[in-house]
Amino acid sequence: MAWNEPGGNGNNQDPWGGRRNNGGDRKGPPDLDEAFRKLQESLNGLFGGNKNRGNDNDSGGSKGGGGFGLLLGGLAVLAAIWLYSAIYVVDEQEQAVVLRFGKYYETVGPGLNIYFPPIDRKFQENVTRERAYSKQGQMLTEDENIIEVPLTVQYKISNLQDFVLNVDQPEISLQHATDSAVRHVVGSTEMDQVLTEGRELMASEVKERLQRFLDTYKTGIVVTTVNLQSAAAPREVQEAFDDVIRAREDEQREKNKAETYANGVVPEARGQAQRLIEDASGYRDEVVSRAQGEADRFTALVAEYRKAPEVTRERLYLDTMQEVMSNTSKVMVTGDKGQNNLLYLPLDKMIDGRSGAAASSISGSSNDASTSSVRPPQMPEVRTRESR
């Protein structure tokens, strides 16, 4: 059933929203101008426009004033948004670089600042905080061994202008420069130094070379510390490397034992050699002094002999017999009264005993001092009174 047929529901409601009044008349389609006018009045009320309506002429003036107010409101909103984005605060640990029309304009310190986008561009960074970059990779040493070297680089921004303008992605450039510096240092170092006590020296060399690269690129980055952690062999050959390290430790241990033994034996041998040298020197001085004394005694004896030959010979004879008899056993044979006593001297035993004593003396001296020997003193000629 159509909305406008008699008896239909459309008698009271049409699709355009018109209602029949009590008199049976209905309104026409809604006025679009009236809807826009009500919307404009609402906006004018929001931004301070005139809400009162007068006659038709006043309605036309309200429409013109409402459009101008809407424009002012939009401009105010845009200005507020621009001002909110243009004002910024730089902390004590930060700096900001401002570019105007793409060209460096100024470096801003801590405080409240303003710039003018889109004419200006701002780059704000913390320049006091230390940043860290870690890396690990397989590298080839000087003796052609592959090892894994983990390291950590600590750095900070020293010049924000260079950091922003000179290099695109300066931290990526830092990673590439670190890789180049580490490979150069490890490639010129043997594996033993990399795995053991050479890491500190390598870290200083890597830091120096890396800083030289960054200064050449003018990245505005300063390297504070390079930490080379414990290097290790790749997992595929770790067992073989462990065997090599154990063998090297065994070699060093055996060397230490040999050095310890040498440090104990060599000084002892040197001491014994010095003792033998001192004993030989003493023996030599003794023999020379004794010979010199004998020569001096003989010289003095010659002088006395020339003065009194008979007396001197007698005295020599008595002294010699006294020396011989005092060190030799004697047998006295006595006879009857009126017979001469016979003194028996075992000359053969005396000679054998004197020879044995001299041989033992020479043997003892050769064992303690040197192999030099001294001829045994000759027996003095024993002469009887009849032979004289």
Rank of each mutant, 00 (worst) to 15 (best):
Tyr88Glu: 14
Tyr261Pro: 07
Phe36Leu: 11
Val382Gln: 05
Glu142Ser: 13
Glu34Phe: 02
Val244Ala: 09
Leu165Lys: 13
Ala177Asp: 03
Asp179Thr: 03
Glu286Tyr: 08
Arg183Pro: 15
Ala295Val: 01
Glu381Asn: 11
Asp348His: 09
Thr216Lys: 09
Phe213Glu: 15
Gln93Val: 14
Val98Pro: 00
Leu201Gln: 09
Val98Ile: 09
Glu310Ile: 05
Ile245Gln: 11
Val206Ser: 06
Trp3Tyr: 04
Val77Met: 05
Glu259Gly: 09
Ile362His: 02
Asn263Gly: 14
Gln292Phe: 10
Arg313Thr: 11
Lys330Asn: 08
Gly64Asn: 07
Asn341Leu: 12
Glu294Val: 00
Gly17Met: 01
Asn4Tyr: 15
Glu259Asp: 13
Leu210Phe: 01
Lys38Tyr: 06
Arg297Gln: 10
Arg199Ile: 06
Ala291Gly: 00
Leu174Ile: 02
Arg284Asn: 03
Ser360Gln: 06
Leu83Thr: 09
Ser180Asp: 06
Ala308His: 13
Glu386Leu: 08
Asp25Pro: 10
Leu72His: 09
Gln322Lys: 09
Gly45Ile: 03
Leu345His: 01
Ile277Ala: 15
Asp162Pro: 03
Ser42Trp: 11
Arg284Cys: 03
Pro30Met: 00
Asp250Gly: 03
Asn341Val: 13
Asp368Met: 06
Ser366Cys: 04
Gly264His: 14
Ser373Tyr: 04
His184Asp: 10
Trp82Asp: 10
Leu140Ser: 15
Asn263Ala: 15
Val90Ile: 05
Leu316Tyr: 01
Asn50Asp: 07
Lys51Gln: 13
Leu46Lys: 10
Ser326Arg: 14
Ser134Gly: 11
Thr219Pro: 05
Thr141Asn: 01
Ala359Ser: 08
Trp16Leu: 06
Lys330Pro: 00
Val265Tyr: 11
Leu99Asn: 08
Val333Ser: 13
Phe298Cys: 01
Val333Pro: 03
Leu343Val: 03
Phe213Cys: 10
Thr178Val: 14
Glu171Trp: 07
Leu39Glu: 13
Leu78Ile: 11
Val226Leu: 12
Ile362Thr: 07
Thr225Ile: 11
Ser134His: 12
Ala132Tyr: 05
Arg100Trp: 02
Lys122Arg: 15
Gly187Phe: 03
Glu34Met: 06
Gly54Thr: 01
Leu210Asn: 04
Arg100Cys: 12
Leu210Tyr: 02
Gly65Trp: 07
Leu72Pro: 00
Val226Tyr: 11
Ser281Thr: 12
Leu316Gln: 09
Arg297Gly: 12
Ala262Asn: 09
Asn341Gln: 10
Arg20Lys: 05
Ser281His: 09
Arg290Gly: 04
Trp3Gln: 04
Thr371Ile: 01
Gly102Thr: 07
Tyr84Phe: 07
Val333Cys: 08
Val153Lys: 02
Phe36Gly: 11
Ser289Pro: 04
Pro110Gln: 04
Glu249Ile: 10
Leu174Glu: 02
Arg313Met: 03
Gly102His: 09
Met1Lys: 12
Ala269Pro: 02
Glu144Val: 08
Gln161Leu: 12
Thr328Val: 11
Leu70Trp: 10
Leu32Asp: 01
Gln229Asn: 14
Tyr217Trp: 12
Leu140Tyr: 03
Thr334Asp: 09
Pro376Asn: 00
Glu381Asp: 13
Met191Pro: 07
Trp3Asp: 10
